[in-house]
């Protein structure tokens, strides 16, 4: 073996070593590709995950799987999921112990939109209200329970057609998605026909990054690196909205999601707004505040969504 061959062999081995040094991770957001997940797409496309030694794969609900991430993470099909605190707490009931390792949005995008003017919670009494079959609207349900409202919940798969057709009186929407879908469907939405939970006592932060307790115990550093790259990705979205939107549209078009750039731009802007901490206005990815967490757990216990309390320490890293 001459000297040159030796150098070449070392070079190949070094390259292999570098490639294999990348930790494979699979992330599953809560829904199909859209600007709600812009930060992760951007971090992946701009190489922030790779810089942290992570080889990330993103699997979407409705594209790669019909099952939601919360159902797949327990069996280890995916490593990281994006979920809401309520979903994560409720998953514990079925033995899936996930932990919040990074809180992305700092408030809720949950809203109720009605055909009629809404003047306080009592306006919803006796109404039929649409909600997602897959969950995420528990806040609204807790709100109605707390106000002793007699509401008929109509679960639906997705979209706004149930509401548009007039089959239901009101519907649960997300401020960054269905609200804009509705706006694009009917031209304008009178503010008086809506209830916003953001800023209210039900303002529980939503999208956060979750891993199982086992995964965190096993790969604490990997999770740290993942979180760092994700924060960097979102920060890039804040600083480069048009470029981030381009990346979102690539993801959207790749799987043929029926949407448009205008809708995604509205969604991205609203998501960026939701990154801000309500009290300080800073974008610091603070964990869910203790007081809000305690209220949430107590509400979930009272309404039997969960059967046992979960300590803040067990839930938030």
């Amino acid at each position: 073996m001459n000297r040159n061959t030796t150098i070449l062999l070392f070079a190949v081995l070094a390259a292999f070593a570098t490639a294999s040094a990348q930790d494979k991770m699979t992330l599953m957001p809560t829904w199909m590709p859209q600007a709600q997940f812009a930060g992760y797409y951007v971090a992946l496309e701009k190489g922030f995950y790779a810089d942290e030694g992570i080889d990330l794969t993103i699997e979407h609900m409705g594209v790669n799987s019909s099952k939601p991430g919360i159902e797949r993470i327990g069996s280890g099909e995916v490593d990281v999921i994006i979920s809401h605190p309520i979903q994560a707490l409720m998953a514990r009931e079925y033995g899936t112990k996930v932990k919040n390792v990074l809180q992305i949005t700092q408030n809720t995008g949950m809203m109720i939109v009605s055909h009629q003017k809404l003047d306080g919670p009592q306006s919803l009494n006796g109404q039929t209200i649409g909600r997602w079959k897959s969950g995420f609207s528990e806040i609204c349900e807790l709100y109605c329970l707390a106000n002793n409202l007699d509401v008929k919940w109509i679960p639906f798969l997705n979209g706004i057609n149930l509401f548009i057709s007039g089959a239901i009186d009101a519907t649960v929407v997300m401020s960054y998605n269905e609200y804009y879908l509705l706006l694009e469907a009917i031209g304008d939405i009178p503010e008086e026909n809506t209830i916003k939970f953001s800023g209210s006592g039900y303002d529980i932060p939503e999208d956060g990054v979750y891993v199982t307790e086992d995964y965190l115990k096993k790969y604490p550093d990997r999770v740290d690196r993942f979180c760092r790259a994700t924060v960097k990705g979102w920060q890039y979205c804040i600083d480069h909205r048009e470029e981030s939107l381009d990346i979102v549209m690539q993801y959207v078009n790749r799987v043929g999601v029926r949407t448009n750039r205008f809708h995604q731009s509205l969604m991205l802007n609203e998501m960026i707004n939701m990154l801000r901490t309500p009290l300080t206005g800073a974008t610091d990815y603070s964990p869910i505040p203790r007081d809000k967490y305690d209220i949430l757990v107590s509400m979930l216990l009272q309404t039997n969504y969960i059967s046992e309390p979960v300590s803040y320490k067990d839930f938030v890293r």
Binding site: L157, L162, S165
Partner: peptide
């Protein structure tokens, strides 16, 4: 939970879906 089922059910009349 699909529109084609739920909407005519709730409306109590035939429905053309979007």
């Amino acid at each position: 939970t699909m529109d084609w089922f739920q909407i005519p059910k709730l409306l109590g009349k035939p429905y053309w879906s979007d």
